[in-house]
Design a binder for these strands. Structure first.
Lengths: 171, 171
DNA sequence: TTACTTGCAAAGTATTTGCACCGCC
DNA sequence: GGCGGTGCAAATACTTTGCAAGTAA
């Protein structure tokens, strides 16, 4: 659901290659982190990456190393840093094929990816019009996910007796 | 250049009113912070706000108070929190009339505001299409500002003798 | 006078840095 | 075997929280 086996292998290989090309040696921590990032379908925070690495049996990687490696990969443009306003940074593999943005539920904190060609087009056009040299772009939508939206509705409704159809003021 | 006197007074008044309406008393720190935010034309970080308040004679406001007041104003939707990926949060008055987004120069850190109707339209259309309830949205463009772009070019060029027009390899 | 507001200082959390040891080449 | 890679722990930076004193209503 989302990425194919091929795309997975592809990014991991390209990332490894990019590191080698930049003169980095190949270390266990790097390999483990790249493998993990390759499996993800959306951005994870440094802490989540650390826990995932510790859990998944393979090998634990120190937080400092995670940050260092993410920096290297970001500099090589193989990883994208995503800030969604929760006071922490999230990271994800920079795949050409799966370019997307994020919706953040301010109630439960969930981060949901989405794609939108029209949005991309608008940004591309904008980039051509300004003197600023646009290299990357991020779009973050804040609000309530379907679940939390329902929860909110359920929390607001109760005060209305189920008999009266609630004269919803269309403010 | 940007906002008119009227719009300034307008936001400050609305913010003050919003606080009062939410049951908050009127305190000196709140008034000072609102006045400062009202003068700004783009987002400032908590630290910048603190320094500005200390400098501009009027009255200093403790950092903790700044964060607290910004939280209140954000909850009332009178202030927008902007995260541009520099490890700190920026805040600005939420004006209906001056809705804009930000370009961040990754070289010098400068944050530049811009507006784009087409982009807004794309986001509005997108919001209608998804189950997620979109309340706010942020667009951040990363890259190099005009100045830094030139600086980069100047730094890369020197190896080319000024006589030869540099046969820019189109990779 | 009562309760909210503010400042100061301490606590937290995310990220970075220094340094010694380990492993790739 | 040397040079980078990695882990651990300490240091930073930003933000939040606790509490006592100030102040609006």
């Amino acid at each position: 659901m989302g990425l194919t086996e091929h795309e997975h292998a592809d990014w991991g290989a390209r990332a490894t290659e990019a590191l080698a090309g930049a003169g980095y040696r190949r270390g266990g921590a790097r390999a483990a982190l790249i493998a993990l990032l390759d499996e993800q379908r959306c951005a994870l925070s440094a802490t989540e990456l650390e826990q995932a690495l510790r859990t998944r049996g393979g090998r634990g990687v120190a937080r400092a190393s995670i940050y260092r490696i993410l920096d290297e990969l970001e500099a090589l443009r193989m990883v994208t840093r995503v800030e969604v306003g929760q006071g922490l940074a999230r990271f994800e593999a920079a795949r050409e094929e799966g370019h997307h943005h994020h919706m953040v539920c301010d109630a439960c904190g969930q981060v949901i990816p989405f794609e939108d060609p029209e949005l991309e087009r608008a940004i591309r056009r904008l980039a051509q019009r300004v003197t600023f040299a646009v290299a990357e772009h991020d779009v973050v939508l804040h609000g309530a996910c379907a679940d939390c939206r329902q929860a909110e509705a359920a929390r607001d409704e109760p005060r209305r007796p189920r008999t009266a159809p609630a004269p919803t003021a269309a403010t």
